[in-house]
Simulated scan of single mutants.
Amino acid sequence: MKTLIALVTAAALSVVAGIAQARDLGPDEALKLRDAGTIQPFETLNAAALAEYPGGKIEETELEEEYGRYIYRLEVRDAQGVQWDIELDASNGQVLKHQQDD
Rank of each mutant, 00 (worst) to 15 (best):
D24W: 01
K57S: 10
Q40G: 00
A20L: 14
R23Y: 10
A30I: 08
K32S: 12
G18C: 12
G68D: 11
Q40W: 02
L63V: 02
Q21K: 14
P27A: 14
K57H: 03
Y53H: 13
E64A: 04
R69W: 05
G55M: 06
A49F: 02
I19P: 00
E29R: 14
E62C: 02
T61D: 11
L33M: 07
G18M: 12
G68L: 04
Y70G: 02
L74C: 02
P27W: 01
L45I: 09
R73F: 06
L31D: 11
T61L: 09
T61M: 10
K57V: 10
D24G: 05
D28C: 03
A36E: 14
E75Y: 04
E60H: 14
V16S: 07
T38N: 12
I39L: 05
A48T: 09
E29M: 07
I19H: 07
D28L: 13
N46H: 07
L74T: 11
E65A: 07
E62Q: 08
G55A: 04
F42M: 04
D35S: 07
L25D: 07
E59T: 07
A48S: 14
L33V: 03
I39G: 10
A20G: 09
L33W: 07
I39V: 13
K32F: 00
S14Q: 06
E75F: 00
L50Y: 07
E65K: 06
D28W: 04
V16T: 10
L63P: 10
A30R: 11
E29V: 14
N46C: 02
T38P: 06
A22H: 13
A20W: 13
R73W: 01
P27I: 07
A22R: 15
I39H: 05
Y67L: 00
Y72S: 06
T38Y: 02
N46I: 05
R23D: 10
F42R: 08
A20N: 11
E75L: 09
E43D: 14
R73K: 15
E43H: 05
E43T: 11
A48G: 05
Q40Y: 01
L74F: 01
V76C: 02
D28E: 15
P27S: 11
T44R: 13
G55N: 08
E59I: 11
A22E: 15
G68W: 10
T38C: 00
A30H: 06
A22Y: 13
R23W: 03
K57P: 00
V15Y: 11
I71F: 03
V15M: 13
T61Y: 02
N46S: 11
V15R: 04
I19C: 10
A51G: 12
A49W: 03
T61N: 05
L31R: 15
E75M: 04
R23P: 05
S14T: 10
A36H: 11
I71Q: 10
E60M: 04
E43F: 03
V15H: 09
A48V: 01
S14A: 12
D35M: 04
A47C: 03
E52H: 07
G55S: 09
G55Y: 09
L33T: 07
R73V: 05
G37K: 14
